[in-house]
Simulated assay, not measured.
Amino acid sequence: MQHDFSAYLSPWPKEQALPTEHELRAMLPIGLLLINEVKTLESDCLLQLRHLDDEAKTVVDYLKLQSRKIDLVLQYVLEREQHEGEKYRGAYFGGSGIRIISDTQLVENEQFKITLHIRDELVALLCFVTVTVSEPLDPDDNRASGQYISSLEFTQILETDVEQLVKASLSVQLKQLKLRKQAKSSS
């Protein structure tokens, strides 16, 4: 899904094996652990609340507001943390990988440890990627912007993080559809 986000990349040595899922979990900083736990609890709770009747709508709305407040506080905490690696601007994300924009061309097949932050969807995760393609951002532009767009495929990611990315992608898509519908109706 096309959407801006931040990605922090740290090169991963070719001679070093990728961590196992258990080792990846052990690498998670406290901020990411907190966000993942909150998102899991929230998801479980919302599933249960969907079975309530319309009279519970006020309670559900209140709980969503409380959840949003917690999300904002956690996002603030995450943004203040030190991030390992070089910061890149993300352009697309999905369940199988991401695309980032950079001032230098990345080397195909290079491995990176990466921390993703998709602020609007409160997604923050740590995973590993391989560069599959890195090409000029606009190859038809005669002025040569000097920027590159690189596709990165997930090589080690927690299953729960894949689910978060897919849900976030659907959420962003729904928001974009609503905005287009509003724009058409106001025209």
Rank of each mutant, 00 (worst) to 15 (best):
F5I: 03
S6H: 11
A7L: 15
Y8L: 05
L9P: 03
S10C: 13
P13N: 08
E15D: 14
L18Y: 06
T20A: 05
E23N: 08
L24F: 11
L24N: 09
L24A: 06
L28G: 05
L28Y: 08
G31E: 10
G31N: 09
G31C: 08
L33N: 09
L33G: 10
L33T: 05
I35S: 02
D44P: 02
C45P: 04
L46C: 00
Q48R: 10
R50V: 07
L52M: 14
L52G: 09
A56W: 13
T58H: 12
T58Q: 13
T58K: 12
V60P: 01
V60M: 11
D61L: 10
Y62F: 10
Y62H: 10
K64Q: 15
K64L: 14
L65K: 14
L65V: 13
Q66N: 14
S67N: 10
S67K: 06
K69S: 10
D71I: 01
Q75C: 07
Q75F: 00
Y76W: 15
E79H: 13
E81M: 11
E81N: 06
H83F: 15
H83M: 12
Y88E: 00
R89C: 02
G90N: 03
A91R: 07
A91Y: 01
G94I: 07
G94M: 08
G95D: 12
S96H: 04
S96P: 00
I100R: 04
S102C: 07
D103N: 08
E108L: 00
N109D: 15
Q111G: 01
K113H: 02
K113T: 01
L116S: 02
L116Y: 05
L116H: 04
H117V: 11
E121A: 13
V123A: 00
L125W: 02
L126H: 07
C127G: 14
V129M: 06
V131D: 05
T132D: 07
V133D: 09
V133M: 09
D140L: 05
R143A: 10
G146M: 01
G146I: 02
Y148L: 06
Y148E: 01
I149N: 00
S150T: 12
L152S: 01
E153H: 13
E153V: 07
T155M: 10
T155H: 06
L158Y: 06
E159W: 00
E159P: 00
T160W: 04
T160E: 14
V162W: 03
V166A: 09
K167R: 13
S169M: 05
L170T: 00
L170H: 09
K175Y: 05
Q176E: 12
L179N: 11
K181T: 13
K184H: 11
S187Y: 08
S187M: 14
S187L: 15
